[in-house]
Design a protein around this nucleic acid. Sequence first.
DNA 1: GACGAACTCGTACAGCGTGCGAGTGGTTAG
DNA 2: CTAACCACTCGCACGCTGTACGAGTTCGTC
Lengths: 234, 234
Amino acid sequence: MREPIWTRERKASPARETLSREQIVAAAMQVLDAEGVTGLSMRKLAAKLDAGATSLYWHVPTKDDLIDLLIDEVWGEIDVPEPELAGWRSGALLFAHSLRAAVLRHPWLPEVMYTRPSMGPKGMVLGSRSLMLFRGGGFTEFDLDHAVSSVMSYVLGCASAEVATREMVRNSGRSEGEWTAEMLERAQQVSADYPEMRASVRRRTTQQLDTALTANFVYGLDALLDGLQTRARS
Amino acid sequence: MREPIWTRERKASPARETLSREQIVAAAMQVLDAEGVTGLSMRKLAAKLDAGATSLYWHVPTKDDLIDLLIDEVWGEIDVPEPELAGWRSGALLFAHSLRAAVLRHPWLPEVMYTRPSMGPKGMVLGSRSLMLFRGGGFTEFDLDHAVSSVMSYVLGCASAEVATREMVRNSGRSEGEWTAEMLERAQQVSADYPEMRASVRRRTTQQLDTALTANFVYGLDALLDGLQTRARS
DNA sequence: GACGAACTCGTACAGCGTGCGAGTGGTTAG
DNA sequence: CTAACCACTCGCACGCTGTACGAGTTCGTC
């Protein structure tokens, strides 16, 4: 019952089509961005690539290693300007905003980032470039390391907290307006005991969520950079 | 074959000995601190309590809810001084150090903290007291919220990164000295392309890990508080 | 035509969170 | 004294997970 020659498949393509690490990383990034860390399983990922589940393991040693690759991919998305092109302050601002934006694009980052070394090549470039930027701003020796880490810590901490809030809205299923309204109501219920908290929540609900979070981020970033500025070139 | 009255158990105890939510939370905290988030499973936890695995579910709706309880427990460990007892600056310092210490005591916190609302009662108290502290420092309205969040973001970001480093050492199985030495060597291997990074790593290896991390934390914290101070009472 | 490397993948295993429903002991109502 | 009820325990089972293993397929090279 062979098929006739001309409808038979031809030699199964010139070079056999094959999975690649890049393909896997790209697909995993899509899944992760869309469904979060709990939504990524090796089986689902393989299915998305029309492959058997365990085929992935030839290209990637382990799921954790895959995640390391993905983290490094994110580090590669971040802009750090050359010190010659911008002053330190504006360069640091651009860097910080770029870092925050990357975290918001990849809301799964905070929950995996703090559990691993993660010094892949793109992370190295990021670290190296940010050190250069700050050295251009007059930081040297230990101050250099400390200043860079301070900014990264602040931005990552802030963006991580933001992600938690934003995901909360997303997972609630409600619209942003409905969610903030409900939030205020709930706050008022508990706030008999905590008037400070009620006032704070009420304040926040007067603004768009996005502008409130951005304002918050910028406020602390400016303060931190002010504080660092006095320590430069000392 | 009845035993004599006075050695017999009295009424089989007033109320049958039973699991309690507090017991479960306490045991889970132990497991979590010792073995991290991946080391905590409902079955293991139940075994530790000499109970059937699914018995826990009568006291706690879900593993995620249990983790929410644990997070709130941690918030309860944090000191925030009354504004009357200390000035704003020293109060904020104490608060920040207390928060950092709590994260270091519970290194599993960063990887779960950013994935949930987590506004339990002790979190409320923490938020409320920190707002009071900063209001005593001259912050009002939006500045108040922003200043508090800035400090929390910085401290949590910094402590989270620290935890990542410390866990890296712990999981390597080597001693701290061996680990830093190996780290430096590896950095030197890759550093042909990244001289800035090599210099930074070398600088860090000249100090004790703990003092380096603490110095880093304090540096950024001071800078941030400096920056905030100029914004108070404005 | 044979061989080894590159790659795929079905099967299997141990572990996970947890829904379900049966069981059990203590308290209370009739 | 019995029966009903409640608070609580727990074995079983389901569907899911990461991944070790080894057999299978296709390729380029002799």
